[in-house]
């Protein structure tokens, strides 16, 4: 039986700027189940990271609901909120800026235990050592400072500080993007191992589709604050249905066995002034008249877990034909 850990319903996050309103997250809904890795992909500025931050209540949503194990997180009392913070953690892209440069590894890992008043001095030390071992480091690292560590070691420390409170759910925001491929592989293996060992649920935010396809069970593709396609990794990577997802997956350099790369024109539109209708119509090769005026509604394809928001109902492979017919 799969248990829903985090449920997100019609989430909006808008930022006010001088004269405009940036709709960073514009109505996303999804559910994360226990033990799964859910990937959130898209270009910079599409709202992936903001979604992750709202999930952890690092920033409050403008509207919509975030539920943790069935309960609305905004209904938590102050005490409940503090307890909940033990269950949910985050690992950032660049551990150099997320680890305190003036404190050594032992202090950094001890801090969350101290804040939540867990155990006594001796048991806390014990826990720090065990967690260091969990991430493949040893006691010799206790006295070291972040600048004395390599990128991979720093990321291991960041992961250690995320798992030290025995969380349920971790947001990994571009957690391996800054690493060399050989180190990246080590960290990905470590995350998988920890997930199996502690039944962790991951929200994996990344722009690197090779990594996402390898690592995630399900994927949501975001564009301008909206999820345009969501489904099982195998289904989306084998046959993406949304033209944006199609272009995104064809653009993976390692993927182009047959060199069938779709190069999208232009950049991401300004999120404070998004296009009318379907947000993707300005860059879409298949855009129809209706795409300019009407926003598509998510519809199911296949077994119902795979959803796509696009007006086109023809499979991607036939679309070139339908385009010439118009």
């Amino acid at each position: 039986m799969t248990i829903a850990i985090v449920e997100v319903e019609n989430l909006h996050k808008h930022f006010k700027q001088k004269s405009s309103l940036v709709k960073a997250v514009n109505g996303v809904s999804f559910t994360l189940y226990e033990g799964e890795t859910f990937g959130l992909v898209g270009e910079s500025g599409c709202g992936k990271s903001t979604t992750g931050e709202v999930l952890l209540q690092l920033t409050k949503q403008t509207s919509g609901i975030v539920k943790y194990k069935g309960r609305d997180v905004t209904s938590f009392s102050k005490k409940e909120l503090k307890n909940w913070r033990k269950d949910v953690q985050i690992v950032f892209q660049d551990p150099y800026s997320s680890l305190n440069p003036k404190k050594n590894v032992g202090w950094i890992l001890n801090e969350p235990l101290r804040i939540h008043q867990i155990g006594n001095r001796a048991t806390r030390f014990e826990k720090v050592l065990r967690t260091l071992e969990d991430v493949g480091l040893d006691a010799s690292y206790l006295e070291r400072f972040p600048h004395e560590l390599s990128g991979g070691q720093r990321q291991r420390v960041a992961i250690a500080s995320a798992i030290i409170l025995d969380p349920v759910f971790i947001v990994i925001d571009e957690g391996v993007s800054a690493l060399d491929v050989s180190v990246q592989a080590q960290i990905l293996n470590l995350l998988k191992e920890l997930q199996r060992k502690y039944k962790l649920t991951y929200l994996f935010i990344s722009h690197d589709l090779n990594v996402v396809q390898y690592f995630c069970d399900r994927i949501a593709v975001m564009y301008l604050g909206e999820i345009v396609e969501i489904g099982k990794t195998e289904e989306i990577s084998a046959a993406p249905k949304h033209p944006y997802a199609e272009a995104l997956f064809s653009a993976i350099p390692m993927h182009d066995e047959d060199d069938r790369r779709i190069v999208l024109e232009g950049d991401l539109p300004d999120p404070s002034n998004p296009p009318s209708g379907c947000p993707f119509h300005t860059r879409c090769a298949y855009a129809l008249e209706i795409c300019r005026s009407e926003k598509p509604i998510a519809r199911s394809v296949g077994d119902g877990t795979h959803k796509v928001s696009c007006h086109l109902s023809v499979p991607v492979t036939c679309r070139n034909l339908s385009k010439t017919e118009q």
């Binding site: 592989a185 990905l188 293996n189 090779n210």
Partner: peptide, 16 residues
Amino acid sequence: EAIPDHRKRGKALFTI
């Protein structure tokens, strides 16, 4: 071998 891709899903990645 360390490059992740969809064909290696479910398997540990090779690391140096």
